[in-house]
């Protein structure tokens, strides 16, 4: 363990390699089980969003609800780009760049707020983008939604590519999160989380570091949205700007352990497993039962699963 953690690059490289093996191995293993592929893609999507949220909500301690805003923006960026005939890679690039460009100034402005005030301000961004997208129907199709070109292609191929892209994106997000956690940025963010005033006093440029974390997080969410749009093939504003895209990653991170590197991953797995189990077996009370289970988990493991295990091992 000591030798592994001694080099800061081994973890991220392992994460990427593991992601690549999973991404290309899973379709071979369960390629005939389309539903399992779908679940795996969904899990990778939640892992990605939870890790992205954790950069701001966990490492920095700012409870952001803006995940859905960047997710939707990314989805619409690639949809509009593809309708204009751009190749897919440029659509992904546009999704990441647009999200980052919006996040930087917006984050710089609202990261001055704290706690509940910050949460509400970040939530507003979702509503604003949803309204803009709905109203700007010449570009976005408004409430009619957008069909992504190529969505009618070979469905198995689409499902496989979506899984591969999503898993690699999740692995990349995990690797990034490891690098941030071990590096100077992570140290600065941790200082901000513990005591922002003291951190500023110690010479940490808090507004800059917070904005960097927020921007990185937004770019990942934008990419996740773009991957999602290409996977589903049809998006409309109420789907991709659904506030649940903001809430589910937070719950996943809470279950796994806020502010830990692997918490969002473990939490997402537990969340998806419970959600699937409840949804399958309880026709109309699925969501309610899921809520009860989450409440129980948070009560029993208030710090999350990962810190819970670490503490047990320490004692």
């Amino acid at each position: 363990m000591k030798t592994l953690s001694s080099s800061p690059w081994i973890g991220p490289v392992l994460a990427l390699a593991g992601g690549a093996i999973l991404a290309f191995g899973l379709p071979v293993l369960v390629g005939d089980q389309a539903y399992l592929l779908r679940l795996a893609t969904q899990l990778a999507l939640l892992v990605t969003l939870a890790i992205a949220w954790n950069l701001v909500g966990g490492f920095t301690g700012y409870p952001s609800f803006a995940t859905a805003a960047f997710f939707g923006l990314g989805a619409y960026a690639i949809a509009v780009a593809q309708q204009a005939g751009w190749p897919a890679w440029s659509g992904f690039l546009l999704a990441a760049v647009l999200s980052a460009l919006l996040a930087a100034p917006f984050g710089f402005a609202i990261l001055r707020l704290r706690g509940h005030y910050f949460a509400i301000a970040s939530l507003m961004l979702v509503t604003i983008l949803k309204e803009v997208t709905t109203g700007w129907s010449d570009l976005t199709g408004g409430g009619m939604g957008i069909n992504l070109p190529g969505a009618g292609g070979n469905p198995t191929a689409i499902a496989t590519v979506a899984l591969e892209t999503m898993v690699i994106l999740a692995a990349a997000a995990l690797a990034l999160s490891m690098i941030v956690a071990k590096g100077r940025l992570g140290f600065g963010l941790a200082c901000i989380r513990m005591n922002e005033t003291a951190a500023m006093g110690a010479g940490i440029d808090a507004p800059r570091l917070k904005t960097i974390a927020f921007t990185l997080s937004a770019a990942i969410c934008g990419l996740a949205g773009a991957t999602y749009a290409r996977w589903i093939g049809y998006i409309d504003p109420s789907d991709v700007y659904d506030v649940m895209w903001s809430v589910r990653p937070i719950i996943a991170a809470l279950i796994g352990g806020v502010g830990t590197v692997f918490g969002p991953v473990v939490g997402s797995i537990v969340y998806i497993a419970f959600e699937e189990l409840m949804w399958r077996n309880l026709l109309t009370f699925g969501t309610g039962a899921l809520g009860v289970l989450i409440a129980l988990l948070v009560l029993l493991l208030p710090a999350g699963i990962i810190p819970g295990i670490l503490r047990r091992r320490a004692s």
Binding site: I232, Y234, D239, T287
Partner: peptide, 18 residues
Amino acid sequence: IYSDYQSATPRGVQACEF
């Protein structure tokens, strides 16, 4: 065989596949 997709289109697609 009923499946509740909670008024969310993506889950509706998932329900069809399920």
